[in-house]
Nucleic acid binder design. Structure first.
Length: 118
RNA sequence: ACACCGUUCCGAACAAUCGCGCUGCGAAUUUAUUCGUGUGAGGAAAGUCCGGGCUCCGCAGAGCAGGAUAGCAGAUAACGUCUGCCGAAGGCGACUUCAGGGCCAGUGCAACAGAAAGAAACCGCCGCGUCAAGCGGUAAGGAUGGAAAGGCGAGGCAAGAGCUCACCGGCAUGCAGGAGACUGCAUGGCCAUGUAAACCCUAUCCGGAGCAACACCCAACGAAGCAAUAGCUUGCUCGGCUGCUUCAGGAGUGGCAAAGAUUCGCAUGGCGACAUGCGAACAAGAUAGAUGAUUGUUGAUCACAGAACCCGGCUUACAGGAACGAUCAAAAA
RNA sequence: GCGGGCGUAGUUUAGUGGUAGAAUAUCAGCUUCCCAAGCUGACUGUGCGGGUCCGAUUCCCGUCGCCCGCU
């Protein structure tokens, strides 16, 4: 598998805070999307934030898995070289996978991160 | 049967496709990755309430202070845990619950009410006196209170009172039983309340910090302040140690993942917790943090909930289900 | 993950085991031509669940929530 098709996690608190400060944001009902240009042009990095106020450890992990799974589905058509941070909002805990996937598609479209189908 | 009590266990299952963490083995090559195979959260992983292992500071040596525990005996690495027994309370019962040592070592507190709260005369009763007042005796009765001078009955007395006696309760002494808590019996003077989850006393235990501990490697090898009248070592004192503190810089590896107070089975010892012996089994080890998506079938719309150095407990949360043992009542015998 | 601290009126806070107090806010009245200020009065309570005690904000235990520090 090529590097561009793997899910690259975002590391480092400074990158998160830069995304919050300088990134362009797109908000939906269940999540908020932040985007800034990244250093690595061959892949995009994904960071997911779920606050402790959203629920216990099990609920937070479930939301992160749903978002990661939905993001993985869009990897082949995603633009490279971006840093993307997704912050989950309270409705995401009870929304379910299908709702989150549809909303992620809408937000990625708004942010112009989707390439045309090859 | 229903119900109730105790102990133990499970806590959605299976298959297919795509995807994720780790790693033993095999293969491939671009020597770092890929492919195949294997494996991948809990009974509470939680709260962090106790106890240990482990690590460092140090040599914790002495005294004081402080903290914890509290029937007895045992189990254990240790414990505030567990087991058995004793006592008290609850239940028809199986059984359950209990911080369950000491206020005749001392000190304190007991608001309001009440005459009086650790020692007592307001009303009443009796005697003297008498127009009345007053003086003395008295805790049986009234009233207050959570608690009122051991309880209750009889004798006794001017009226009364453990003043005397029977029974019950409590205390002390003696004897007997028991490993002990304690139990039983006898005798004694009749015995001044409650509160130690108030201070305290008695007995036992406790050096401090915690894997963000700590070790190694790379980079840096700086700046400022204090400096024996200082700093560290536990709160203090003695004693001990020798630089100390702050700022800047701060990447990675180990610790840390398969093996130990482990789990299961059998045997022996013990009422039991548990111990000993033999045999077998055991790869979660992440580091922004791995278990998800889709489809099908079955019960059913699926509880509480996610490892972060590791164990033993406790406590709290929890849809529902299973096994074994025991109890009461009815019926039958 | 580890170590500490705190929960009292709507808000900010007092409170040796004995009726829980103050400021402010809110409401009503007085004052004023009206408003503000001032004066008077009312209203509102110990995070939750047990235990000890005659009696608990206080003492003890367990929970829930919030805050702080340590790479």
């Amino acid at each position: 598998m090529k590097q561009s098709e793997r899910l690259m996690p975002l590391k480092g608190a400074h990158l998160f805070s830069r995304a919050y400060r300088k990134g362009r944001s797109f908000s939906g009902g269940c999540m908020v999307l932040y985007v800034i240009p990244g250093r690595n042009a061959s892949a995009s990095l994904l960071g997911i934030t779920v606050s402790r106020k959203r629920g216990n450890a099990v609920a937070r992990n479930r939301v992160k898995r749903w978002i990661r799974e939905a993001y993985r589905g869009f990897l082949p058509v995603l633009k490279k070289g971006k840093i993307i941070v997704i912050v989950a909002k309270q409705p995401a805990v009870t929304a379910g996978y299908a709702v989150l996937r549809d909303e992620l598609e809408e937000l990625l479209g708004k942010a112009a991160l989707l390439d045309a189908q090859p």
